[in-house]
Simulated assay, not measured.
Amino acid sequence: MSSVERIRLTYAFDAYCGWCYGFGPALHEFAAANADRIELRVLSGGLFTGSRALPVSAYPHIPGANERITELTGITFGGGYRAALAHGTVVMDSADAATGLVALRSQPGVNALDAAAAMQRAWYVDGRSLSGAAVYRDLAAELGLDAEAVAAAFASPAARAEAEADFIDVRRLNVDGYPTLLLHTAHGTDHLGGPASSADMLTRALNQHLAAATAA
């Protein structure tokens, strides 16, 4: 299938969204299984921005939500993250995280979904804030990228502007929760699966949507 024929999908996520972390493995498996026919872009949604960019302790529902996420997806949360949650001082700033995603995905040869997953491991496994350049230098090394180039991109006004553009794109798509996987066809935009969907369920949903669109 040529690039012009690829099925277009958008993944709206937030690096500080636990449900996105839980959804990640299934989405990765789905993307790998359908790599020859899909084109997937990853956009940051801006869950914790402005007055919502607060220390994690300001969100007391999070531990209970994490238990539910583990129950439904099987994902586990790391010791570093549990310590950060207990300490409560890390500020979840989605604008910083979105800028970090831009800095990573803008490098040559990067898979944006891999970059998003690496960021979520930094927080949900290691408990590292996504607001400082140091974490992106380390993620760059993990992803085989130029650490200084990534750090420079993270600090650039252009990356911050692109992150803000992500937020605008997500709002234009009428996304009201995360994770959201969207399928774009000639007939419009459809939601694909949900946060507890398996890779097989996502592939079946994709096939059903495409069959319906073809028949329409």
Results as ranks from 00 to 15, higher is better:
S44D: 14
I62K: 02
L206I: 02
G188T: 08
A141P: 03
I168E: 12
T180R: 08
G46V: 04
A215E: 05
G22K: 00
V125N: 09
G193W: 00
A186L: 14
F167N: 00
Y124L: 11
P55Y: 11
R171Y: 10
R41K: 14
S94Y: 07
A15W: 13
P60L: 13
G194Q: 14
C20L: 04
Q208I: 15
V102R: 12
M201L: 12
T10H: 07
A133G: 08
L43W: 08
T49A: 08
P157K: 03
L40N: 02
A26D: 10
G144W: 05
E39C: 10
G18N: 03
R171M: 14
G132K: 11
T70F: 10
P25H: 07
A211C: 08
A133W: 06
L181K: 08
R41Q: 13
I69V: 09
H28V: 15
A151Q: 05
P55W: 15
A116C: 01
F48Y: 15
R105A: 10
M1C: 09
G50T: 01
G50R: 02
I7N: 02
L101Y: 06
R128S: 02
L139I: 04
Y59H: 01
M119R: 06
P108H: 03
S197P: 07
C17A: 06
A83V: 04
H187M: 13
R171H: 11
L143E: 03
T99K: 02
D138M: 10
S94M: 10
A147D: 12
T180I: 14
R52S: 12
S106L: 10
A205W: 04
G144Y: 04
R172I: 14
A212H: 14
H28D: 12
Y21V: 08
L202M: 13
P60G: 10
R204P: 00
S129E: 13
L173S: 05
P195L: 01
A32F: 05
P55E: 11
G18V: 05
L182I: 00
D138S: 10
A116I: 03
P63N: 08
D176A: 15
